[in-house]
Design a protein around this nucleic acid. Structure first.
Lengths: 108, 108
DNA sequence: TATAAGTGCAACTATTTGGTTTCACAAGTT
DNA sequence: AACTTGTGAAACCAAATAGTTGCACTTATA
């Protein structure tokens, strides 16, 4: 059973859950109320998110509050960083091209 | 058949392919040589990557060169941006806490 | 023209996935 | 003590997925 961040965010429902609990911690029931999904389906998604440490839980009485582990999101950011470097480089190169065009072809 | 960027990057083999062709365009055979995967398996991954516009192809004679559509990667970056805002805010808040600690408890 | 190389695609298979239904259990409430 | 609420987990199911095998087509080469 593969369980990494990329697999976790692949599902749109899970991304929606992530978005929901990003600001405030929420209980499974409260989360389920925001979707057409059943409580049990949400529970399974939460388990998957837990297994890759994207969410943490805190028990309060008989309720369990789930909250986003924002640190884990940085992992995606780190993976993306190498590609960001590429598109920034390309942007700069394009910038140079435009600059060059300006010089060789000044205001008509 | 769901076909979006998040689902595409969920598979580790596809992330490896993305990484491979990020710098230089490559043919399916050349890509397959870098894995244990068969040429056909790579071909299927390339199709999936094509379907969500993560890669583009260019035919040269009987060879087809696949290259990464770096613009599409920005989509992930944009999705991540909202969470980046969160962790940067939290970082700043932590920063303020540390600053406050410094003031109330100056160099021992 | 015959052959080889590079490729996509369809059919098939085993595994994984997302979801539902049902049950169990713990924490409050009556 | 009996009931309700909030939850996780197991069993089951349909659909999707990753991979293999085999075939077809196109482009180059002998």
């Amino acid at each position: 059973m593969r369980r990494d961040v990329f697999q976790a965010i692949a599902d749109p429902t899970r991304r929606a859950i992530i978005s929901l609990i990003a600001v405030n911690a929420m209980t499974p029931n409260a989360i389920a109320d925001h979707f057409e999904a059943t409580r049990q389906a949400v529970s399974k998604h939460l388990r998957i998110l837990s297994e890759c440490d994207l969410v943490t839980q805190e028990q309060k009485g008989r309720e369990i509050y789930y909250s986003l582990q924002i640190e884990k999101m940085k992992e995606i950011d780190q993976w993306l960083a190498q590609y960001r470097k590429i598109w920034e480089t390309r942007f700069n190169q394009l910038d140079q091209v435009l600059e060059q065009l300006k010089k060789t072809n000044p205001q008509k």
